[in-house]
Write a protein that binds this DNA or RNA. Structure first.
Lengths: 163, 163
DNA sequence: TCATTGCGTTAGTCCGACTAACGATGTACC
DNA sequence: GGTACATCGTTAGTCGGACTAACGCAATGA
């Protein structure tokens, strides 16, 4: 081992990260989100689903059928990406896509019985995955965490940057 | 217009997002991180910097010179991406990259006086940006938030998925 | 009627996280 | 001393998510 290495590396070889870096909320968010996304994606993949599937199905279940644009608004998925998501859902017979007789530009998307069943399953899967995600936190802390995130997101959703 | 802005408009048609979707921690994390990343990136862009620059400079300042691999470990930047980051930093004369006489495979990266000055500026910029990011939270809540994030990240860092 | 707006769709950009593999070099073991 | 293996910097490329541009078409309203 060279002299330079001895200066850089602690005895166990674990690399040290500066505190000012480690404490930055933006960095914590990025890193945690990366882990969270992977956890959720892998979990959903095991039941042949993606998180967008859940968003669309839940939105259909809770607010009824709608056009692709409507779903886009309800779920936050861009309408450019919605196409692919609905293709996947239709392939699996979880939704039906039919032309709207009242407005021939639109498709009316409806959740199927199978879709409803699948949604119930996804809800369970996601509950478990979030249990894993939030494992180190007590129930009270989980509530706090969600609350803080919500407030921050709301703030930045309704307050666009003046740039 | 971004996703979150488009979602959820006050209409009588009520394009609303299902609660079970809105409350999921994973989703809140993703969305907030997207906003946070944009905020930080745009802010840093105004001083001709990227967040990786900060990570590398801070690591050099706090722990001294090191090889690219060392920096990779300290900052979390993949060594494949480190190349480009160091190119940018070297272009701006913020670091110096010199071959290590003791090990000709390595480069020794050193922060320059200019780099130190730049780092001080970045710290200030980031403080301001985080003030904006965490605006809706009280100081106590900010501490709480950082603490919760840290615990979660630590947990998932030291506990790899059993897959 | 004609311009405008909304719809679904295709294509493509940008970025961050991550993997694979290469040539050059260094280290360990027999 | 050779040889197998590990490490370093580097290039290239994958993957998914967020986001933009623009098309053809249908509906709307002045």
């Amino acid at each position: 081992m060279t002299r330079a290495e001895a200066a850089d590396l602690p005895d166990d070889g674990a690399p040290k990260t500066p505190d000012r870096l480690r404490r930055r909320a933006s960095r914590l968010l990025s890193q945690l989100t990366a882990r969270s996304d992977r956890l959720i994606n892998e979990g959903l993949a095991q039941v042949d689903a993606r998180k967008w599937h859940y968003a669309v199905l839940a939105s259909l279940q809770d607010f009824g059928p709608g056009s692709q644009a409507t779903l886009s608004g309800r779920t936050g998925i861009y309408r450019s990406d919605m196409v692919g998501v609905l293709n996947e859902l239709a392939e699996r017979d979880l939704v039906e896509r039919a032309p709207d007789p009242d407005d021939r530009r639109r498709n009316v998307i409806t959740i199927s019985a199978r879709g409803r069943r699948h949604l119930r399953r996804l809800d369970k899967v996601l509950d478990d995955l979030h249990d894993e995600l939030l494992a180190p936190l007590s129930p009270a802390e989980r509530g706090q965490f969600v609350q803080l995130l919500t407030r921050l997101l709301d703030h930045h959703t309704r307050t666009p940057d003046p740039a």
